[in-house]
Design a protein around this nucleic acid. Sequence first.
DNA 1: AGTTCCATGTCGCGG
DNA 2: CCGCGACGTGGAACT
Lengths: 219, 219
Amino acid sequence: MRILVADCSVEYEGRLSAYLPPATRLIMVKADGCVAVHADGGAYKPLNWMNAPNHLEEEDGRWVVTNPRGERLTISISHVHFESEMSMGEDPGLQKDGVESELQRLLAETPEVIEAGLSLVRREFPTPVGPVDLLCRDGEGDTVAVEVKRRGDIDGVEQLTRYLEFLNRDEHLAPVRGVLVAQEIKPQARTLAVDRAIGCVEVDYDVLRGLESATLRLF
Amino acid sequence: MRILVADCSVEYEGRLSAYLPPATRLIMVKADGCVAVHADGGAYKPLNWMNAPNHLEEEDGRWVVTNPRGERLTISISHVHFESEMSMGEDPGLQKDGVESELQRLLAETPEVIEAGLSLVRREFPTPVGPVDLLCRDGEGDTVAVEVKRRGDIDGVEQLTRYLEFLNRDEHLAPVRGVLVAQEIKPQARTLAVDRAIGCVEVDYDVLRGLESATLRLF
DNA sequence: AGTTCCATGTCGCGG
DNA sequence: CCGCGACGTGGAACT
């Protein structure tokens, strides 16, 4: 990785046009070639950047970075305060825990959290427009399609609507109703869901985990 | 801005849990207090971070960053290869040009570019599922809902479809038809739009600007 | 503060 | 390569 602190102005021409007047900034060039220009503030996002793959042309104080999509980043450097290059080796990468797939796994184990009397038929039940997260049956024996999201958004309602459209064409399953389950459901998503007679259930992730460990302790 | 290159492991506990095994990385602390841990690759996004506002507690090789939302970032530093602190002053900030809001503004001024005879009723016309970018009336006096996107995607068609569904329930407006306007419309979006009787119009951003400056020159 | 939508979103997966 | 969906999305604008 190469790091510079320099007085520079920057221009980007690509998906939009952007110009950055002269000032002191941090310029970072990573091993994969990606370039980022940081100010001393504004969270982790750089002011301007060019991701890999790209091509960097360097010529006395003028860097031109181009990529295959025809975008161009031009950095004009008037003064370098500091420069250093260091090798950092391969990174082992980030391990994550607590994303949607795990939420789905927990709900598949205890579907009665969604609604009393609900039991799982199948996870990732296939339809022509993609798999339904959970296909269940309720206490009346009717089919229920469950869409699981970490955050319930309008997109999730649209997705579930598409599934229901196809599921209800299957006479073995119909009538099928839908339930959107999420840690948090946005008001507009709720409005749309109610309008389409789709149920909304908010679940607490930690409670679910607690249920799981409680269940495990029984065995 | 403070910069370190150090051997470290990192843990994040908050919206999810994440762990980063020991390796050499760049640690950046900006003037606003935000902390970012970068590997030597993987675009501009840090592996782990904590945005401002936050509180950094530093104690022999162990940094604990917490924020008001109860999230916590822990950096365990085993060896520091390099460290530096420099002042960079205020940044004048980025000037952007060519984003959706400006496209919408230009189209609101000259809706006839979208379709001959079109006139603007209101920008950001509210519906229960979000505001329509431009509500217009055509030469026949019929209502037209216009969705403006920089890039016309399937999402844009879905969005416009939702608006139309609600607008057409309003007897004062119905019948309402829809037009998707973008600098570039993806083939699949076009297909879906045609299937739903939604119009597609591609506009050239530079031409629009030219029209504006031509109009301005008249006064 | 809460809510909405845009973004040079980025990133990963599957066809 | 394109499409689709998740993301600790982040960030700004508006209520």
